[in-house]
């Protein structure tokens, strides 16, 4: 697709959307949002980029392969389930830090889990979309 309007818009909106996805991820625990929808919004950034610039450019813009995002996401999610085991608790029991961290707020394993979901959803959506797009270009 070769549209100047789209290209220009995407250039400006991309960073905002990415920021918005992180915002959704961070507020998820208290307000509507979370890792799943955050990951979906983040993936729209790259899908828009694919539409305006092309498949290869989008892959370069992403810098890592979608597959590694899936791996990172899944590993993060699984790792977040383990600390409780070392404390002698049940698998996946949530563990929270007492002190609050700036920007993130209350920090604990559920947040890490949500972060894993974010990356996983991003990776999955992009791996499907990009491999579909790869053929049509």
């Amino acid at each position: 697709m070769n549209s100047l309007i789209l290209k220009t818009t995407v250039r400006f909106i991309n960073k905002l959307l990415l920021l918005f996805s992180v915002f959704l991820l961070l507020r998820g625990h208290n307000e509507p949002g979370g890792g799943f929808v955050g990951g979906l919004v983040a993936s729209t950034v790259f899908i828009l980029y694919t539409l305006s610039e092309g498949y290869k450019e989008a892959l370069a813009y992403l810098k890592v392969s979608p597959f590694s995002l899936i791996i990172v996401g899944l590993t993060t999610a699984i790792l977040s389930a383990l600390p409780s085991l070392f404390l002698g608790d049940a698998f996946m029991k949530a563990i929270w830090l007492e002190t609050r961290i700036p920007i993130i707020g209350k920090f604990g394993t559920p947040f890490v889990f949500d972060l894993g979901v974010y990356f996983l959803v991003l990776g999955i959506t992009l791996s499907i979309v990009l491999s579909l797009r790869k053929d049509s270009e």
Partner: peptide, 22 residues
């Protein structure tokens, strides 16, 4: 420690389900 019940269910109360789903 979360006011968004939906999200708390997904990442905490029923996190094992979510893990399976992802």
């Amino acid at each position: 420690y979360g006011r968004n019940v939906v999200n708390v269910i997904i990442v905490d109360f029923r996190a094992l389900d979510t893990l399976g789903e992802i």
